[in-house]
């Protein structure tokens, strides 16, 4: 019952968002994503940067509606971005991009709320001593991706560590780890895919 009500709330929240905020940005996002589809990495980077604050706001709103602390939003935002990345081939490039994006975001938010809901209920006593005293920061730094990074197979972890944390390029990573660039690309993609599956807990 609770889960169902939660779902409805989130649906409404995200739908409302599409209606009120997105009409102007939609065509810009769609253009960027089409360029990205055609192989334009800069357009893809710009698109991800452009959608992130909107995803963040929508996630905070969803958390607030579900009665969850909004400062947890960043982990969910990262999960959304990973899903957008790994599932972008399911976007039909003749359709507008925003509805697809929000369907993905809604899906990830519902998933995250279900997981968090359970975890909060189970662990509430563990945190009881810590929570009340500490001043709540605006946004808790995201920790889930980093913690799952540790459990990846060594190759994938090293490549992700190098590219994501140390900001190295694929070329630099290849020479540093004495791998071919192709192998770095494969490890990078597999690493991202396994991160996503670890985040969703399957």
């Amino acid at each position: 019952m609770i889960a169902i009500r939660l779902r409805n709330n989130v649906r409404e929240g995200a739908n409302g968002y599409v209606g009120t905020q997105l009409s102007g940005r939609d065509s810009e996002w769609t253009d960027l994503m089409r360029s990205a589809d055609a192989g334009d990495t800069i357009a893809y980077h710009r698109l991800l940067k452009a959608v992130t604050p909107v995803m963040r706001a929508a996630t905070r709103r969803g958390l607030a509606r579900a009665g969850q602390p909004v400062d947890q939003a960043e982990d969910i935002v990262q999960e959304i971005l990973l899903a957008v990345h790994l599932k972008r081939h399911t976007w039909d490039n003749t359709a507008p991009f925003a509805p697809w994006l929000f369907a993905i975001a809604r899906n990830k938010l519902i998933d995250a709320l279900r997981r968090r809901g359970r975890r909060v209920f189970v662990n509430i006593d563990d945190f009881a001593e810590v929570l009340p005293g500490d001043p709540v920061e605006d946004t808790v730094p995201p920790g889930e991706v980093a913690s799952h990074l540790e459990s990846l197979p060594p190759r994938q972890r090293d490549v992700l560590q190098s590219i994501a944390v140390e900001s190295a390029s694929i070329k630099e990573t290849a020479s540093k780890l004495s791998m071919s660039e192709g192998a770095v690309r494969v490890a990078l993609h597999r690493g991202l895919a396994s991160l996503a599956s670890r985040l969703r807990g399957t």
Binding site: A36, G39, T41, Y44, H45, L48, K49, T52, E74, V77, Q78, L81, L82, H85, P141, P142, V145, A146, L149, L160, I163, A164, V165, S167, S169, I170, R185, L188, H189, L192
Partner: peptide, 14 residues
């Protein structure tokens, strides 16, 4: 990992 880094990583996998 902050979101900025994640975005750059996703773009590298584009």
């Amino acid at each position: 990992m902050d979101t900025e880094h994640l975005i750059r990583t996703l773009a590298a996998d584009q």
